[in-house]
Amino acid sequence: MKRVVSVSLGTDQRDHRVTLSLLGQTVMVERRGVNGNLERAESLIQILDGSVDAIGLGGIDRYLVMAGKRYEIADARRLALAAQRTPVVDGSGLKDTWERWIVEDLTQSHVINPSMPVLMVSAMDRFGMAEAFYERGYQVVAGDLIFASRINYPILTREELIELGRKLLPEMVKLPFWQLYPTGAEQLEAVPENHYEEYFDAADIIAGDFHFIKRYMPLRLDNKIILTNTTTDADRAMLRSRGARDVVTTTPVIEGRSFGTNVVEALLVALSGLTQEHDGWTELVAKARRELFKLTAS
């Protein structure tokens, strides 16, 4: 049986293991959180190297891809290079396609429509999703500066998002990752003084990274549609208890957990031997998506 492990900088309270069938093969998928400890993540990857079929990097992106440019986060590069034999992926091979398709699907099925204002809590880390909204005429507020840096400045256009990404990302990716993104126990904490509720209130669709959403969301989310990534049953129950109309995860929910894009990409690499650089990758991603969402439905 193939084995895939996602090494996550997040809390170990969300660890889980599941066995599933995909693309005609059985695979065991495991998540192992290291509570924000980069050194622990590095040694775990070294231990797993050569003994599993693919490793996912969770809670950290290796690559941020914006408007044709790819920026590599220094700490993630260090983690990826800790493995010499087993491929290490961060989910960026899926985000650009999969998260675009979600916006298309939801729009086509009339779950959402361009008259609904969107808050993307962070768009530089999922530019594919942001572009899908822009291309369909949605009014998007990108909250990268607000939620990652606590600078109360909403980014209101695609052009400004790209301009800011071009100016900031080349340097930001060199910073220690903990300065850029909540890791470990910080992921479980809500921000005590939250001055940014107005952005949630003004939006009908709240999209993007769940840890940013969770840290900054107001007590009420009445009638809002949440479009996010990895969540647990408890997370989705909490969003509904605050009034959210719908919670859509960009990756399928299997056994109560939505997988991170890094997990799905690691699954595909392990099962097919292909990576995003290979021909046929996009078709493989589409096929796996159909199968995984069928699993969700069944």
């Binding site: 840096s149 100016k167 900031l168 080349p170 340097e171 930001m172 300065q179």
Partner: peptide, 17 residues
């Protein structure tokens, strides 16, 4: 940390790329 990050961002917005 937020304040240091902001100073970083200010310098990048003045001189970045």
């Amino acid at each position: 940390q937020d304040d240091m990050m902001r100073l970083d961002i200010i310098t990048l917005l003045i001189w970045g790329e």
